[in-house]
Design a protein around this nucleic acid. Structure first.
Lengths: 179, 179
DNA sequence: CTTGAAAAGTCAACATA
DNA sequence: TATGTTGACTTTTCAAG
């Protein structure tokens, strides 16, 4: 029982305590969310309803943000991956710049500390489409420059790992690109 | 499915034809893979078995790489996200460097064109853990330097979008960070 | 696309610590 | 009191027609 007894229990909506059993469940679901609750419980040392109950709770609390299918980039016509560093005049977090999230090519938007203000992860069909996307980013007010890092090969790309609780199957250390 | 698919099969099946109906199915599954096939078919204008058949085919062909739960980074104790540019002596794609994939903090490994050789996406508990990870990366033979971009806020982070086939619900353009 | 058997998900009352 | 278990019951899955 790794209970966190800090006494005061106010009406905090998200109960974010993740115990060892939850971590085991997450460890399975992060690799394959198509398993049945029976199998999931078996792998985590729980009965099916118990596993289900905990998973439901983690979904409610936000510990599991969502369960999604990961599409193959090439199959959907976006084989070109790039990271774009965006420099802006002033503080870059403007609504106009955040509006780039409406481009389906943009998968991630972060503000970063370093020599760049904003970092984008973008996926396009080819270099021409990337050029077009960059042109639209340049059109955004406040943007002064961009630097693009075009990905040649991707060797690892996986969701958030819930941390090591016990033995962990070594990830297939890719000496060959997965894309 | 107690199939012992250890993920080693990185088969590239030539069957990669994705039509409009497949794209609609993917569009739903990429946002929420917990829907039933009945609901999935309804949203994509197909019967449940038809939807099921197509999804199975996309899983076999690799168009759907996997179906996973996305864990909240904070809930699993990794609130600090950083992108690390790694410079190497010679061609950096050595097995030693690829072995960093055994660190659960490392989520992505790419080789890139630009002023860096390799780009890592890493998630750690705090700056101290990031420092430790960087130290281990420095220990790797051939690594000459690293530059880290620590993420201050994440405004968008989503899986590969299957492309726009028709009306697409505008993603909640985040003016507030999601982490 | 429809069907139907098999499997999984879901709920309630009980047990446990 | 909160969490796990067992077993009945409902829904979904999925291959055959």
């Amino acid at each position: 029982m790794d209970e966190e007894t800090d006494g005061i229990r106010q009406n905090r909506l998200p109960e974010r305590s993740i115990d060892t059993a939850d971590r085991r469940l997450l460890g399975v679901l992060v690799e394959d969310a198509t398993v049945s609750y029976a199998e999931l419980g078996e792998k985590a040392g729980l009965s099916a309803p118990a596993a289900h109950e905990r998973v439901k709770r983690m979904r409610r609390s936000g510990a599991i943000r969502q369960t999604v299918a990961m599409a193959d980039p090439r199959s959907v016509g976006k084989p070109l991956l790039a990271f774009v560093h965006v420099d802006t005049r002033g503080w870059g977090k403007t609504p106009e710049l955040m509006a780039v999230s409406s481009f389906p090519e943009v998968e991630e938007i972060h503000t970063v500390a370093g020599d760049a203000c904003i970092l984008l992860k973008v996926r396009t069909e080819d270099t021409r489409a990337l050029e077009g996307l960059l042109a639209r980013i340049y059109d955004t007010p406040g943007v002064t420059s961009t630097r693009s890092y075009v990905v040649l090969s991707t060797y690892l790309e996986r969701p958030v790992q819930p941390g090591i609780t016990q033995d962990w199957p070594a990830p297939k250390l890719g000496t060959n690109p997965i894309y």
